[in-house]
Design a protein around this nucleic acid. Structure first.
Lengths: 200, 200
DNA sequence: CTTGACATGTAACGAACGTTACATGTAACG
DNA sequence: CGTTACATGTAACGTTCGTTACATGTCAAG
């Protein structure tokens, strides 16, 4: 059974996904949910407590969505970066990343207020993908670059809304990596191991 | 001669560079500058007017700094992306970009309030660099990717403060582009034109 | 010396903020 | 039926917000 607080939390997550958190205020928020500021404080102790629980719930939701992606992909051999990108820019998941990036930036300028809500940033998501890189390429520089390509393109997507062009840029990066591999000498040991698995 | 307002504007830019704008408030700001909220409104009409003028002045400052970079580099043939990166992460210029990215993100979630202050975003800076790309590579996807690499790495730098690793990632990207070029067949016309100029 | 433009100080306005006090419903359980 | 825990409504607290009213300095030009 779902407690009143859990129901509220779900609705609050949806509200935050839509309105962001830079100008969050209890009374308009309560009005939008058909409740009162009084009730929000009653259930969450304070605004800070509310944000803690709601943002935590939000990140849990996103991780669940990611979990189901991993299940679905299972046997497929599509490029991990492309797959992650397509998943992230889905109508369903896009608002989550948008909120995470807002949180990230607010934490940079005001760590005392927002830093505590930041469990893991979006870059850490990309590190998951980095595990799909061949070991020889899994250097800090390459992992950082991979994460940055995702972060930067998502930022561009948020600003311009241009899914087509940003997705093309993802493919451009993958192609770049492929071409660079072709230009390098084949790796010394077991060059053909799992040769059919495409990475990048 | 500098008017009182211009002096104030300069001090205000410095204040914004240090404190960001997500929780800007007139009274603390005035206190920090040794003046009063009354005076700020007197000179700038309103908080909005103040932000308009101060952010405008801020972007002007940054463009001037960029201008002097262009002058200094003149004959050099270092990689444009690396040069731009080194310039941006300077102690002097870093805060400007930090503020610009905060502005950018705030504008995404709250365009009605912050959108008007955004003349050009940092990506547009990168488009300047893109002009250094060989024409054949100056596709929308490649230009977008180039801008995203800068944006993403700067975001990572802001979050972690790790200049070394992020700079290595810049170099990693440049190397990737170089290797990819090596893997492609030489361009059909005038392959050797300005062959000594290194790009990327 | 007077005028007038610029600059400033003091104090307050109304609105919104997060939070709290206090009283009251609702509904399951003994 | 009475008790108890959860939920809610109304109203206010003290603070801060952007902004304004009104009076007063400063100082060069006439």
């Amino acid at each position: 059974m779902q407690t009143r607080k859990e129901i509220l939390t779900d609705e609050l997550v949806d509200y935050l996904l839509e309105h962001g958190l830079s100008d969050l205020s209890l009374r308009p928020l309560a009005d939008a949910l058909g409740t009162s500021a009084r009730l929000l404080i009653y259930h969450f102790e304070s605004k800070e407590g509310l944000l803690t629980e709601v943002l935590d719930s939000m990140q849990t939701r996103l991780r669940q969505s990611f979990g189901s992606l991993v299940e679905r992909r299972a046997g497929q051999s599509e490029r991990p970066l492309k797959m992650f990108w397509d998943w992230a820019i889905t109508d369903e998941n896009y608002p989550y990343f948008k909120l995470l990036y807002e949180l990230q930036i607010l934490a940079v300028q005001n760590p005392a207020v927002y830093g505590s809500y930041l469990q893991r940033n979006a870059s850490n998501w990309s590190e998951l993908i980095a595990t799909a890189l061949p070991e020889a390429e899994r250097t800090p520089a390459m992992v950082t670059l991979l994460g940055a390509v995702f972060d930067g393109l998502f930022l561009e997507l948020m600003s311009t809304g241009d899914r087509k062009r940003t997705t093309q840029a993802v493919l451009q990066f993958i192609q770049l990596v492929d071409e660079a591999r072709a230009a390098r000498p084949a790796s010394k040991k077991k060059t053909a191991k799992a040769s059919s698995t495409r990475r990048g």
